[in-house]
Amino acid sequence: MATEANTADDGGLVFHPMDQFIVKPLFSDGPVGMFTITNVTMWMALTVLAIIALLVLGTSKRSTVPGRTQSIAELAYGFVYKMVEDVAGKDGVKFFPYIMTLFMFIVVSNFLGLLPAAFTTTSHIAVTAVMAMAVFIAVTVIGFVKHGAGYLGLFWISAAPLPLRPILALIEVISYFVRPVSHSIRLAGNMMAGHAVIKVFAAFAPMITISVGVGILVTPLSILAITAIYALEVLVAFIQAYVFAILTCVYLKDALHPHH
């Protein structure tokens, strides 16, 4: 429906805020099948290459006094490692490679998505939902394997007064099952919202070509707004990856120590 806004009656401004999220095949015009090479494939491949460049090629010298790239790689490593250790505890460290994988994928695709004309893989609910469901299922399985039925104690809050406990248990169960939803929609929604807002402002930018009188005011304002939102999006790109990873750690902690 957004594409209806581009009707000619407001002077030719074209609003396609959601077009940037369209999945299209790269080499053909046919339908998008499961194994079709699409722009999703391309940007995910670029993500993989960027991660390899940073974490593998960047550290290939193994220098004791690190260079610039190696410093960043070590910084990322130390950041995620400390996060896992602090939030999930010592026994959460063995899940560190998985969380590092998620974090690196999200943060690199968020940043790549900020390139002009890029496709943001993490803005798709399908992508984030798979990751969130994977975390959810893994955490639930870990919880039941480690604690058996005792894992259900997570929902039975023994600190609360007895009459309140069933109600709290119900709320806890609901919030437990809402976790993957909020986990995935938070990331996808943030990415989608930021990019759509940038696109809306970008659509106002060529106003000066339509009407000089209005455009002389609107065009600089919208360019300024794009710059500001872009800066915010750079921040959001990192923070959302951080939040996704840290929430994964929190859920993991619940699975490892349900009685805290």
């Binding site: 079709t36 995910m44 893989t121």
Partner: peptide, 13 residues
């Protein structure tokens, strides 16, 4: 497009 995205996501991860 879900199956496509999910497939490539799994491969990537």
């Amino acid at each position: 497009t879900y199956s496509n995205q999910i497939f490539w996501l799994v491969v990537t991860l």
